[in-house]
Design a protein around this nucleic acid. Structure first.
Lengths: 248, 248
DNA sequence: GCCGTATGTTCGTATATATGAATACGATGA
DNA sequence: TCATCGTATTCATATATACGAACATACGGC
C-alpha cells in the first residue's frame, strides 16, 4: 500500500470529455444542445452523442427538448457524501449523555494521541468537563486504550515501549488491552485523575477504529454502573458506525 | 432539429464506470481504495486506474493517502447550475421598481401568450397591479410586442394574421414591431387599458427572448419619462441576461 | 408549398483505451 | 532484519469506442 500522494494524475480523454460535458450542461442556461457540446469540445457530434446518451442513462444528464441539463444523479453525489463522523455522532452522543447524566466525548486518534473532537457535557453540578481539541495520551485514557487495543501490533508495541515501564506493569497493560480487544470496552478507573472514571467504546468501521465514544464522570456515580453504561455505549457506537458507512 | 424526447438512452460502459466510481467515492466513509473500486465494478485494477487518475486530474476525485473521495469539482457543478431567470431577475427588478416607483414584471413567452412569472409592485397608491401567472396576449401588451418583435418570421406572421385585421392596421403593427426589434424597446400606450402605460424590454440570450422586463404604471406618471425608464430597463435586462449566462 | 440549412442519428472502420501479466513499493509480522 | 502480503503502477496487446461520412428529420426563409 504505497502511501503515494498522487502519482502524476494523468489526463484521460474520455473522462475529461465527460466532466466537461457536465460542466457545460451546468453552466448553460436552459441546457446545452448536442452540437454545442461537440463544438466546445472540438470533437465530432457522433463521438459526443454516445457519451451524452450514456450520461442520460445514468441520470447525470437530463434531456429536455433536445437540450441537456444537469440530471438528478449529480445532486445525490453530494447528498450521499458521507456525513462527517462528528455530525453523525452528535445526536447519538446527546442521547447517551442524557440517559446517564454524564459527559460524552468523541475521541479521534491522531498520531500518538487522541483528540476530543466533539463533546456533550453533562448538566450535573459535578461533571467531567472535556478539554476539546487538545491532545490526550493513548494511555491510560479510556479512549486511548481503545485505540491501542485495536491498533496494529507494531504501533502498539512501539507506543507501550516508549510509555510504559518494561516488566510486570507492561504485561498487565498488554493483558488489559487484549481484554479490551475482546470485549470492546475500555475503562479508566481514576488512573488519569483520581475520582474520574472513563468508559470508552470504539466506533469501528471494518477493522479500523475511526473514533472512540467515551463517557466520563465522577467515580461515585460511575463505579456502580460501568457495565450498564458500557452496554449502552456499545450500541451507540455501533449506531454511529452504521450512520457513516451506509450509503445514501 | 428533431424534437426527440430521448431516443433510447443507451448505456456506455466507460461512462457508467465513471459515474459508479463517483458514487462509490461519495458513499464510502473516508474514501475508497482503488482495489475496492475495481472489485465493485468487476473490472481489473489497471482499467480503473486510468479512469481514476483522469478524475483526479479534473478535480472530480481527490486522492488522499491512497483513498479516493469526491473532489471539489463536483460541488461546483451544482453551484454553477444556472439560477432560474426569476431568481436572477428579482433583485434587479426590485431596484428598477424602486428607482421609478412603478410596478415591474417579468414576462415569459409560453405558446401564443406571455405569462407574468414574477412581479415587484409599486408602493404608490395608484399603481399597476400585475396578474401573476395568468396568460396575456402577445398584442398589444408591451411584453408581448417584445416577444413578437424578436420572434421567428413565421411565428410572428401566424400570430398577426390571427389577431390583427389585415390591411392598414396590420402594416402599422408590423412597422412598430420592426422598430422594436431595432431599439429593443416596446411601449404600450394605453392600448390594453386606457391610462395604463407599459414599457417592455427583452432579456436576450443570444437571439432568443428568454423573458421580458416590463414596467407599468398610470399614463400621467409614465408618459413624460418613457425614454428614461426604457434606458434604465434596458440596462437592467442586460444585467439579468448576464447573470443567467455567465458560468460559475 | 418548396428548397436550403442545421441538427440528431446510424454505420463501418481507425484508434484510443481496457485488459491481464509482470513489476515496484510499502506495510506487516516473525 | 528478513520474507510475505497486499496494493499501486507499468507495459504490450485485444477490443470497445471514437471517428467521419452518409442518412434522416425538423426548421427557417422565400
Amino acid at each position: 500500500m504505497p502511501t503515494s500522494g498522487d502519482g502524476a494524475a494523468k489526463e484521460h480523454r474520455t473522462v475529461s470529455r465527460v466532466t466537461t460535458i457536465l460542466e457545460l450542461a451546468a453552466a448553460g442556461p436552459g441546457g446545452v444542445r448536442l452540437s454545442e457540446l461537440a463544438e466546445q469540445l472540438g470533437a465530432p457530434r457522433s463521438s459526443i452523442h454516445g457519451l451524452v446518451k450514456g450520461l442520460v442513462a445514468t441520470g447525470y444528464l437530463r434531456e429536455e427538448d433536445g437540450a441537456y441539463t444537469i440530471g438528478p444523479a449529480v445532486g445525490t453525489l453530494l447528498a450521499a457524501a458521507t456525513p462527517s463522523i462528528e455530525q453523525a455522532a452528535r445526536p447519538v452522543m446527546r442521547r447517551l449523555g442524557e440517559r446517564f447524566g454524564e459527559t460524552v466525548m468523541l475521541a479521534e486518534p491522531v498520531g500518538d494521541s487522541v483528540v476530543y473532537t466533539e463533546t456533550v457535557e453533562s448538566t450535573q453540578m459535578i461533571r467531567y468537563s472535556a478539554p476539546l481539541r487538545t491532545r490526550r495520551p493513548l494511555y491510560p485514557t479510556s479512549s486511548g486504550k481503545c485505540v491501542l487495543a485495536f491498533a496494529r501490533k507494531r504501533f502498539r508495541d512501539n507506543y507501550l515501549s516508549a510509555h510504559v515501564p518494561d516488566g510486570e506493569q507492561r504485561n498487565r497493560v498488554e493483558q488489559e488491552l487484549t481484554e479490551i480487544a475482546e470485549t470492546g470496552i475500555a475503562v479508566n478507573r481514576g488512573e488519569t485523575m483520581p475520582d474520574v472514571y472513563g468508559i470508552g467504546v470504539p466506533v469501528l468501521v471494518g477493522e479500523r477504529v475511526l473514533a472512540v465514544l467515551a463517557t466520563a464522570g465522577p467515580s461515585h456515580r460511575m463505579a456502580g454502573r460501568v457495565d450498564e453504561i458500557a452496554a449502552a455505549a456499545r450500541l451507540a457506537a455501533r449506531e454511529v458506525s452504521e450512520l457513516i458507512t451506509r450509503r445514501g
